[in-house]
């Protein structure tokens, strides 16, 4: 690339700076508020305390809500992994005919608001199985259905770029059984795809609002619903706790996201091929 294309101009630096302020200021103010000891009528807080951090991070309510969010996230991830990986493998390697069907399903959560999906689920259960409404199973299944495309696209992409079809054919020629091929060739070759897809699913399940609010509500108070109660409630200290938890969540998600970008650099084809000595160790595209 020429210098003119890679160098950032002055106006671009101003734009990036302004955007950094827009995205940074809310975080700064959350941190300040969580540390403030009463902040009324002044531009910046005058006294500071760690009290809100201590109460929020040790509050049983917060821990219980975080625990529920975590349990929900783990269950959603497990459902998606179990359903998506075999399906993506089949779609790429053995029967490409199912691909359009899966693609059509994967468009739904991308195009439609999740609130609409949740509403539809509420109507469906009202008709078929009213006692399911408000259950953990229904909530988990709906969020798993809404998030599955993240994992599916990641895995399908990994399978295609790592030439999974050729890999498994070569493994079969070398006398590997189906199970051996899957465990020792395919899974290692798409590991990064699985990981980045899983992290995307986990991040959106952890912060999910529309489906949880509609299908569970107060019956299953996850962290976002706890935050809503703190936001709308007027009990003292709630704001400070909300600020502390929101700040922590943002930083945690940022670290997670840094990890995603780090592992997303595909290098895996050489590793997978090396395991069976199938092709000369060439670098992926």
């Amino acid at each position: 690339m020429s210098r003119a294309m890679t160098e950032t101009g002055k106006s671009q630096r101003i734009l990036l700076g302004a955007v950094a302020v827009f995205f940074g200021l809310p975080l700064v103010v959350l941190l300040l508020f969580s540390l403030a000891d009463g902040w009324v009528g002044t531009i910046l807080p005058t006294d500071f305390t760690l009290a809100r951090w201590i109460t929020s991070l040790s509050s049983t309510e917060v821990l219980a809500a975080a625990g529920r969010s975590l349990l929900l996230t783990v269950c959603v991830v497990v459902i998606d992994l179990v359903l998506v990986i075999p399906a993506a493998y089949v779609a790429v390697v053995t029967s490409p005919r199912v691909r359009p069907i899966i693609h059509a399903l994967a468009v739904v959560p991308f195009a439609l608001p999740w609130l609409v999906i949740a509403a539809g689920m509420q109507f469906t259960t009202a008709e078929i199985a009213p006692n399911l409404f408000g259950s953990f199973g229904l909530l988990t299944a709906t969020i798993a259905a809404a998030t599955f495309p993240y994992l599916y696209w990641a895995v399908e992409n990994a399978l295609l770029t790592n030439r999974a079809k050729e890999l498994s054919e070569a493994a079969a020629v070398n006398g590997a059984g189906a199970l051996q091929t899957t465990v020792r060739v395919i899974i290692p070759s798409i590991r990064t795809g699985i990981m980045s897809g899983t992290l995307l699913v986990a991040a959106s399940a952890f912060g999910e609002f529309a489906i949880t609010m509609t299908l569970a509500g107060a019956a299953y108070e996850t962290l976002p619903l706890w935050a809503l109660r703190m936001f709308s409630g007027r009990n003292p200290g709630a704001g400070g706790e909300l600020a502390a938890i929101t700040f922590t969540t943002f930083i945690a998600m940022f670290v997670l996201s840094l990890l995603i970008t780090r592992i997303d650099t595909p290098r895996s084809i050489t590793n997978a091929a090396g395991a069976f000595d199938l092709v000369p160790a060439t670098k992926g595209k």
Binding site: V82, L83, V84, P86, A87, Y89, V90, A91, T94, S95, R97, V98, I101, I102, L105, V108, P109, L112, V116, I117, A119, G120, M121, F123, T124, E127, A141, T142, A144, A145, A146, F148
Partner: peptide, 25 residues
């Protein structure tokens, strides 16, 4: 060969397509 994809397709129909049909109805 297509069997392993069936669970996902059925799950998608149950949790994504059926709800939309229920709304239309």
């Amino acid at each position: 060969a297509a069997l392993p994809a069936i669970p996902l397709i059925l799950f998608g129909i149950a949790c994504l397509v059926l709800p939309l049909l229920a709304l239309v109805k």
